[in-house]
Structure formats: C-alpha cells, structure tokens
Design a protein around this nucleic acid. Structure first.
Lengths: 243, 243
DNA sequence: ACCTGAACACCGTTCAAGT
DNA sequence: ACCTGAACACCGTTCAAGT
C-alpha cells in the first residue's frame, strides 16, 4: 500500500512527480522532505541534490501542475456570455485543483496560474468592442474577481462552522427594516449561484449599459457616465478606541 | 530591546497580547510557542495551561484583532457611491492588517472578519431599492469581491518577480490584433485603480442599468434582462493531454 | 491553581564522507 | 556525478513533578 518507488535512478522529474502524488493524496501538509524521501525509498539528503531545497521543489511542483491545466475555450453567442463562460471555466479549473490553488496562493504565484484564461479574456474583450487600456482593465477585473472568488470560496468550505454563527447573528441584529434580507443573509451561501450572478453583474458593468455592442459605436459604449470626480478621501473607517 | 514582560502573573489575556505583538512586529511565521514563551519570560508549557494549544491561541488572536477593527460608515450622495465607499473602507481595513488577513484566511474565518461591513452594505443595498434575497445577493457579491481582491493583491505584492515575467510573455504572444491591449497588459498592475474600477462596474451591474433609483419604480429596476436561461453546461475546459 | 524541565516525535538543512 | 548517515537547530505537545 505504501507505493514506494525503488526502481530506477533518482531524478528531478521523479522527485517532483512523487511530490505531486503526495500532495494529491494527503494534502499539502503531508509534503515533507522526509515523507517524500520515504516515498521514494531514498535518503532525505538525496532529494536536496536534485531539487536544491523545499522552496524550489514547491516552485517546480507548482510550475508542473500549472502547465497541465487545460486550455480555455469561450462559449456563448454574445461577448458578455463568452466572457462569463471563460470566467466559469477558469473557476472550474481552479476548483478542480484545490491543493494546487492553495499552494500557488501561498507562494504568491497566482498571476502565473492563469495566463491562458487571460488571453481568452483579452480576445473576448476585444470582440466586445473594448480597446487598449480599457480592455486590459476589463480583463484584469474579471481575472482578479474569479481568483478572489475561488479563494474566498475555498476558505469558506474549509471553515467547519462559523464561530458566532452568522445565522444567529443575523437573526439577532436589527438588519434594518427588511426581515427578508436578514433571513436571506442568514441562509447558507450558494457559492456557485453567487459566482455566476456576480460575474454577470461585473461583466455588464464593464461592458457598459448597452453591453451587447450590436455593431455601431464601438468601444465608446463602455465609457460610463462622467460622474467620477471627487470620490476619494471620504472613506470613513472609524477606529473605535473603546470597544 | 527584547521587551520581555516578566512582571505580573501570566494571563490568557497577556499571552494573546504578546502573540499579537509578535505577529505585528515579525510576521505570522515568528509566532512560535517557544518564541512566545521567551517573550513572556515563562516556560513554554505555561502557555499551554492558559490557551490550550497553538490552534486556539490563533483563534483567540484572530478574534481579538477582528474585534477592534473600526466601524464602517458609508459616504457619498448616491447609493452606488455609498456602496463603493463601503467597499473601499473595507479594503483599507483589510490592507491595514495584512498579517491578520493572511492568518484569518489560513484559518478559514474570512466570513467572521467583516460582519460590520456586511451590515453597512445591507443598509445601502436596501437604500438603493434592492429587497430581500436580491439585496442579500448584492451584499455578498460585493463582500466576496472585496475580500477576494485584497487576497489577490496581497498575493501579488508578496511575489517578488513573476517567473516567466508577464511582461515579456505578453510582448511575445500574439495578443490578437490589439497591440495597445497587449502593451497595457504588459504594464505593471495598479491595484488601487483596478479595485475602484471593478467595484464601480460590479455595483453598477448589481443595481441594474438605471443604477441611481431616483425614487419611482423601486426594486424592479435591478431585475435585469430576462435573457439568462440555458447558459450552463458549455463551459469547455479542454484538458490537453499532450502538453 | 499555576508553573516547571525533561522528553517525544517531528521538521528543514548542512556537511563530511562515501562510491 | 550521485547518494549516504550523522548532526544541528528548530518545531508543537505531553507528562510527571513541583509549589
């Protein structure tokens, strides 16, 4: 059952592969140099000769797993839908590799992870009529939204039960004058639904009020209203000293 | 310079406080039971008597720091702006406690962290004309967006230099037919700008095409077009076996 | 009720020594 | 060029023993 791979000579490739196996089967915490050595049937120190140290082993592992993520092909009849489909596909990829995502995130390599998706998004934003810097902003906004969403999702799933229990908290507190709102917030969160919902809203906002871009006025649609001056500075984060 | 606090008797409160200090000054990695004991001038094992183990010490620490996050007060003349201001304030809070955010995230307590912001958001969504479940969705969408954005931001900041270098990658690849887009994507990312931009888009999308809600038709404005059937299933994540 | 040192089972990493 | 065991400096946690 232990699956020790004694045959053949040790190899950087074999080390990384064994590490991937270990993570896939027992989670990132199980990837210790000693356990890895045991799995490979070698001395701990041999590993160091091939991969340097734990740090670069993790780098190599991340690189490897990122490399065989699938391509992303947009689907849908309108640009907005195609962008949304890319977002969903990206989310699915990330959710299919939960350990990887966690490791990549902890290593600060999130950007590296989804260049393919970035290209697909860039293509669709162009098709939607956005150009240049504005298109780039839209690409990145969607990108960050998806990855951020997945991170928060995974986080929520890992938490077995919330401490003060969001449910009771929302029952107790006023919640203003909308009991239906309070009830809805007290209900458990449907991450998938929230994701599609927020992506749709975000994309709609990014592509502008028209959204569809029938063919005419091009990228100017997304310009937005010009009411965006004097918004900064009044954020008001009050630090309550007493509490 | 070591600041050992030998005076007085040991206390659960003093242990947690010392832990907070350690994290604040040297980062989460510096918080080991042994270093903490040294800082407190006690034996390592004394700590266990007061806080049980490292796990619950971290819980207490997180709870403590979350507790004295400031209130969030919305600012702005329209609901959309007030929601955006809450988002910015929340982001600022999170960014002001980078270590905390990382620890909270690793402990799966993200939800717990921003209940105050949630209440502020709920209030504003109500004011914007959203009701019940729809308002709750909007609240959570903004919430997740902000936290996710901050997580990705922190991640990006921690990464010293991206491996294949996003810059060169985008210069090399086709990037379609929009060189300005490629150039823009090759430029370093301005996280703050992207944040305000994406929040504005998201909020606009959530509040609906009208957005401002002058007073008349109420929540129905945010209903959106009814073109949202038959979108699932065609996500198309192709796993390329060869590459 | 509180604090202690010794001990256990783990870590990652280095290094001199082997072939 | 590759692999090894011993050793070092760390971890979190337990436990019997002190007061």
């Amino acid at each position: 059952m232990k699956g020790k791979e004694t045959r053949g000579h040790l190899d950087r490739e074999r080390v990384v592969a064994a590490a991937a196996d270990l993570v896939k089967q027992h989670g990132p915490a199980a990837l210790t140099m000693r356990k890895l050595a045991a799995e490979l049937g070698t001395a701990v120190t041999s590993i160091y000769w091939h991969v340097g140290n734990r740090e670069s082993l993790l780098d190599a592992l991340v690189e490897r797993t990122v490399a065989d993520l699938g391509e992303i092909r947009p689907a849908g009849r309108t640009p907005a839908r195609r962008v949304a489909s890319v977002a969903r596909a990206l989310r699915r990829q990330l959710r299919d590799h939960p350990h990887l995502v966690a490791m990549v995130h902890e290593r600060g390599l999130t950007e590296r992870m989804f260049l393919p998706a970035q290209q697909a998004l860039a293509h669709e934003m162009h098709a939607a009529g956005l150009r240049g810097a504005r298109a780039a902003d839209a690409v990145r906004a969607v990108q960050v939204h998806v990855v951020g969403h997945v991170l928060v999702e995974r986080n929520r799933e890992r938490a077995p039960v919330q401490r003060p229990d969001e449910h009771q908290l929302w029952e107790a507190r006023t919640a203003g004058h909308d009991p239906a709102l309070a009830r809805a917030l007290a209900r458990p969160l449907d991450a998938e639904r929230l994701f599609t919902l927020s992506v749709r809203a975000l994309v709609a906002g990014l592509l502008g009020p028209g959204g569809e871009v029938p063919g005419g006025r091009g990228g100017d649609v997304a310009r937005g209203r010009h009411e965006d001056k004097d918004e900064g500075g009044a954020d008001a984060t009050a630090s309550s000293p007493g509490n």
